[in-house]
Design a protein around this nucleic acid. Structure first.
Lengths: 123, 123
DNA sequence: CCCTGTCCTGGCCACCCGGCCAGTTTCGCA
DNA sequence: TGCGAAACTGGCCGGGTGGCCAGGACAGGG
């Protein structure tokens, strides 16, 4: 809300690959109404690398497991999850067990971390 | 590595703010050698929002708390953390308690999620 | 010198978590 | 029609977790 239509859009260039960064800098440097951010400057948006690292096929999780996983990531206890989903604590524990198995995790914290790493959930 | 200098750079536009997204789309649509990605298309890089939400200065965590936090993110139990750090389980629990307090979390899972969101740790 | 704040360590205890058992219902598919 | 997969429920229990209280070491400020 602090910008009007006359101000330039400040873009931060956060690309590790030097070749790609150079090409982008060259292309974007001549665009009117747009400016690349200087060191440490606050930018409205950033350009980041988007490798193939994402989407290595989502693990096969059921809808219910995704529900439980999302609430786990919010820090909810089994009891809270049960309340929110309208099911019993035992059922929640059942789904959590399946999650731990499918995500190859040793506990709910590990499960959330693994899921976040694989892009199954967004923190 | 799979692109030569003659191909266009494909950029994904991942901005929630409609106004900013429109302005960027208009500006970047006319740049030669650069193209915005279509729906689901694989892009070389993405433009993401860079609000003030990031960088509110890392919360003041002690070195020991960072040690414990890192191991928590690995899914380690208090006992495992105690072993790795050469301290007692009770001490680990104290640090975990401080972490829950500083990160405003209700449990270790929530703490790891909050820390990841704030960039304190990298999953 | 004492006092305060920070970091670290410990014991105690109610509660939660995850693994194990078994059982029902509802689907879609062969 | 049978059969497996998914969702749901229950009991039991060992071990893990987090809150509470207390104390020691160590630096800096009054």
């Amino acid at each position: 809300m602090s910008e009007d239509k006359t101000s330039e859009i400040v873009l931060a260039l956060e690309i590790d690959d030097p070749a790609l960064a150079d090409r982008l800098a060259a292309l974007l440097g001549n665009v009117a109404g747009l400016r690349l951010a200087g060191p440490g400057e606050q930018a409205a948006a950033a350009i980041v690398a988007r490798d193939a690292r994402v989407m290595p096929e989502d693990i096969a999780l059921t809808q219910r497991e995704l529900d439980v996983l999302a609430l786990m990531a919010e820090g909810a206890s089994n009891k809270m999850i049960a309340r929110r989903l309208g099911i019993s604590v035992h059922t929640v524990k059942f789904h959590v067990g399946s999650l731990l198995d499918k995500l190859d995790a040793t506990g709910r914290t590990d499960a959330v971390a693994h899921a976040a790493r694989r892009g199954v959930i967004e923190l």
